[in-house]
Nucleic acid binder design. Structure first.
Lengths: 202, 202
DNA sequence: TATACTTCCTAACGCTCGTTAGCAAAAAAA
DNA sequence: TTTTTTTGCTAACGAGCGTTAGGAAGTATA
C-alpha cells in the first residue's frame, strides 16, 4: 500500500512525528489519533509498527542519552589535553547534539517524567551519570588551577542549565549556525570559569 | 463543615496543591480527581471554588509573571546606579522569586503552553516583555562599556537560561540559602559579562 | 429564629483516551 | 505462482477525563 520508496522506515517516521508533537503539546496532551492524523493514518494502524505510546517516548529519551554520552566521550578522549580544552569540546559536543535534533532534545529534557517505572529511574540514573561526568571534569580543572569556581557542583548545574535552555529558543533557520552557537556559548560559559592566566591560552 | 479556622482560603489551598501536582506530573497528566483526593475532597466539590482546571493554571502563570516584573522594577529603580549593579540586583530578584515558590516557578516556566487562547498569547507577550527588559539593560551596559558581550540578545538568553533551570534542582532544605544562591549565581553569570576594569568595583 | 453563604456530596453527562481484534490489500520473498 | 511480510482499515472495548445539576449540612448574619 506504500506509494513510493519510503525515505525512512515507517517506524522512524512515527518516531519523528511523535517527537515533534510531544515537544509542541507535551507527551500527555498528545493523542495517538492526533499523531495518526499527522501521518495520514488511522489511530489503530500505528500499532502495526509500535507497541505503545510510551515505547516511542522511551526510544527518544534513551536514544538521546546515548548521543550525549557519545559526544562527551569523544570530547574528553584526549586525556592529556588541557582540562579547559576538554571542557570546551564537551560543551560544543553537547550543543551539537541539542541543535542536531532540538525537538528530540526538548522531549529528552522535559518529557522523561512520563516514563513509567523502571524506565524512569533508569533514565534519571543516566542523567545523573552524565552530570557527574561534567562535574568531575570541572573538579579536575579546579584542582589543576586551570579553572576557578567556588563550588564545582554549583558551576556544573549553572553550566548545563545554560546549555539545556537552548532547545527553547534555537531555530535551525536562525542567523547563527550550530557551530557558531556552540563556540559562542562555550566562550561565554568558560569565561566565568577560566583562570585569568589560563584564559590567555584559550 | 470546615473543621478549624482555615489558614488560607480553600481556593488558595486548591491553587497550592494543584501547583505542586502540575509541577510533578504536568498539567495535562494531572486529573481533577487526583487533585481532589489530595485535598480530601470529591472531584465535583472543587467546582464550588474554581471555575475550571485551566483557571488555576492561569492564576499561577500570570501571578508569577507579576512577581517577576515587580522584582525587576524594584531592582532597576535606581536608574543612576551602575548598570552592572542594576543587573546584579535584577538577577538576584529573579532568583528570589524562583526560590520563594519553586513549584509555581516550574509551572510558570513549563506549563504555560496548556493555556488556551487568548491567554497563551498574552502570556507569551508578557514573557517577551520581561526578556526584552533584561536585554535592554545588558545592551545599555555594553553601550557604556560596563559590560562586555559579542551579542546582547545571545547573552540575555544564556543568562536567563541559567537562572530558569534553578527550579529543576533547587531544594528549600539544601545547604545554600536562597540569598546565597542568588549571590553566587549573580557572581558567576556576571563574571562572563563584566569588563575587566569594571570587575574591580564589583 | 429566619436567611444567606460556604462547603461538600452523589450521580451522572458526553467525550476522548490508549489499545485490541479481525480483516484486507499491497509488496516482497520463495 | 505461492507464501510471507508489511501496512493499513473498521469497529469497538473499558476506562478515565472535565464538568454540571441538584441537594444537604454546617456556619455566619440578620
Amino acid at each position: 500500500m506504500a506509494t513510493a520508496a519510503p525515505l525512512r522506515s515507517r517506524k522512524a517516521q512515527i518516531d519523528r512525528t511523535a517527537t515533534a508533537l510531544f515537544r509542541a503539546r507535551g507527551f500527555a496532551a498528545t493523542s495517538m489519533r492526533e499523531l495518526a492524523t499527522e501521518l495520514g493514518l488511522e489511530a489503530g494502524s500505528l500499532y502495526s509498527h509500535i507497541k505503545s505510546k510510551e515505547e516511542i517516548l522511551h526510544r527518544v529519551c534513551f536514544g538521546l542519552a546515548e548521543a550525549f554520552f557519545a559526544g562527551f566521550e569523544a570530547a574528553t578522549a584526549a586525556t592529556s589535553a588541557p582540562i579547559a580544552t576538554q571542557l570546551r569540546q564537551a560543551i560544543e559536543a553537547h550543543v551539537r547534539v541539542l541543535t542536531r535534533d532540538s525537538a528530540a532534545s526538548a522531549v529528552f529534557l522535559h518529557e522523561w517524567r512520563h516514563l513509567s517505572e523502571p524506565a524512569r529511574s533508569e533514565f534519571l540514573a543516566l542523567r545523573d551519570r552524565y552530570e557527574a561526568a561534567f562535574r568531575s571534569l570541572i573538579q579536575r580543572g579546579i584542582a589543576t588551577a586551570e579553572l576557578h569556581a567556588p563550588d564545582a557542583a554549583f558551576a556544573t548545574l549553572a553550566l548545563l542549565a545554560s546549555l539545556n535552555w537552548l532547545p527553547a529558543w534555537y531555530r535551525p533557520d536562525g542567523k547563527l549556525t550550530p557551530d557558531e552557537i556552540a563556540h559562542r556559548l562555550a566562550d561565554q560559559l568558560l569565561g566565568g570559569l577560566l583562570n585569568e592566566r589560563a584564559a590567555m591560552s584559550q
